Simulated assay, not measured.
Amino acid sequence: MARNQEKANGMFNKWTSGKQDALRGSVSRSRPFHTHAAKDLNEADRWRSDVLRDVGRKVMEIQNAGLGEHKIRDLNDEINQLLKEKWQWEMRIIELGGPNYIASAPKVEDADGGAVQPPGTAGDRKAYKYFGAAKNLPGVKELFEAPVTKAVRRTRHQMNLHIDSGYYGFRDEEDGVLLKDEAEAEQQLQAAAIEQYETEQKLRELEGGGGTRKKASTVADAGRQFVAHVPLVDEADIEREVLNRKKQELLAKYVSEDLQAQEASAKTMLH
């Protein structure tokens, strides 16, 4: 209710000041309501400069935080409306063949060089802007505060989604680098082991003296002098033994024990 009253008072003050200017005969031509009313490039450029002066004056005025919340909000609304009107005059200047102020316009900033648009709306011309004390109003201050990014801990399922065969080392040998490194490491280990073995052998020889070498040579000579004569069975003996076994099996199968005994006694008598 108080804000509506302030708006009404503001409109009344404007009407009163305009009436007084009319009585004094010092009424200046007001800015056209629509930009197409300007048919001349110089006129459009003059009205654009007039808008810029109004914007600068109101931006300086809104820096005062003691104006009250409603007054600050009204000033901020007026500044945004003036910026929109400035853009319309710049478009009209382009239509009349004038310079492109939009392309060469600097970034819109506050009087102290601060940002006037909340994060996430940078570069958006139509985004609502906040100047001066308006950025500290309730509900607006939170828009300019950087959001606190909370570290989200990944679940075990999310981590397993990025695990492939390379994680378990199945593709380590594809580029050949690992095989080369392993071969070099293996050679180094072998050389170190051989060197250690030779060193230990020399230490043993030094500790045991010449008696160890003499004993080893004696054992080697005794091994060369001992020869074991073992009779080897030839193929004829093997065939003869196999034939006798088969004969014994047939006799046991088809001849009675008495007949076998008689045959054995006959062989004994012959021999």
Rank of each mutant, 00 (worst) to 15 (best):
Q225G: 14
N100W: 00
Y254W: 10
R154E: 11
S265N: 10
T212E: 12
G25Y: 04
A133R: 01
I79P: 01
L206I: 13
D234T: 01
F131W: 06
A133N: 03
G209A: 04
G97N: 00
H271Y: 07
S104I: 07
K150Q: 15
V227M: 10
H34P: 02
Q248C: 10
N100R: 01
E142F: 03
D74S: 13
D45V: 13
R204H: 14
V59C: 09
P32N: 04
G209L: 03
N64A: 08
A38G: 04
E249V: 09
I62A: 04
Y168Q: 06
D54L: 11
P118T: 02
R46I: 07
P99S: 02
E239D: 12
R24C: 14
R213P: 01
A44N: 02
G223K: 15
D112I: 06
A236R: 09
A192S: 04
D40P: 01
A44E: 01
R125K: 06
I72P: 00
F226G: 08
Y254F: 12
A37E: 13
E257V: 13
K84N: 14
P119L: 00
K135D: 00
L189Y: 06
A105S: 05
Y254K: 13
A37W: 08
E182P: 03
A183K: 06
P99D: 05
